[in-house]
Amino acid sequence: MYICTWCDLKSSFESTAHGSKIIVTTRSAKVASDLGTLPKHDLQIIPEEDCWKLFKKHAFGNVEPSVDLDLEVIGRQIVQKCNGLPLAVKSLGSLLHSVQDLKDWKNVLNNDIWNLREDNILPALWLSYYYLPPYLKRFFAYCSIFPKDYRTDKKYLILQWMAQDLLQPHKTKTLEEVGEEYIEDLVSRSFFKYWRGDEDTITMHDLVNDLAMFASGECCLRLRDKSSDALIRNAMPLMKRY
């Protein structure tokens, strides 16, 4: 099946202009070996000082901050725990953006979640999810229904939330406006990202998608060949009728 799929995909490249180059990015060494015609290039982790700069950008905004020395000491220790992974650095920087209390930063640094070893889920992402407001956890977990690399229209996602009665009415805002605020909040925390700068289209990083799948448990389900009847019975329907 894998070989047939690759042959079908490869055939679409045969009509490209002479000299064209195709770059494949993957976390799988086997995929890199099977698809590559040149030696693979392994990306290295980001140097710690560059990680700190990335963390500062998300924790204090795009302007050059005047960082409290105590916060910097704790922040650099948090960055060290991210092991040079930019997604981890971004998610925790975004988490701490609205929190400038030293006690809260210490709580993040010393949280037991750092010791968790769930497959494919970064402890830093777990921490970011742990500190989400309860209502945002529900919306984020709902997005586990989307497969990896899936892009969705922001307005379409809001309509799905509305169809599931997830959005709470607000005295001065429409449900669509409430949904927009929730999406912006999840983007600011690096759970969602805009697709190539298009603020109407959102997607999730693969590792964030893994977290959404784990967080949703049996509430949401992607139908697969090996899905059990029990899981299917427990899952929520994708869309209700209006």
Rank of each mutant, 00 (worst) to 15 (best):
I3Y: 13
S11E: 13
S12Y: 07
F13T: 08
S20G: 07
K21I: 15
I22P: 01
I23D: 12
K30Y: 06
V31F: 02
V31Q: 00
D34N: 14
G36C: 11
K40G: 12
H41G: 00
D42S: 11
L43R: 03
L54R: 01
E64A: 13
V67A: 10
V67I: 15
E72Y: 03
V79L: 04
Q80S: 09
Q80V: 06
K81C: 05
L95M: 09
L102Y: 05
D112V: 10
E118N: 04
D119R: 12
L125Y: 03
W126K: 14
Y129R: 00
Y129Q: 05
Y131I: 07
Y135M: 14
R138C: 13
A141R: 03
S144L: 07
P147Q: 13
R151V: 06
T152Q: 14
D153G: 14
K154P: 00
Y156R: 04
W161R: 02
L166H: 00
E176Q: 06
E181W: 02
Y182A: 06
K193M: 12
W195G: 00
T201G: 01
H205F: 09
L211F: 10
R222H: 03
L223Q: 05
S227C: 10
D229N: 14
L231K: 10
I232F: 14
N234I: 01
A235D: 01
K240N: 08
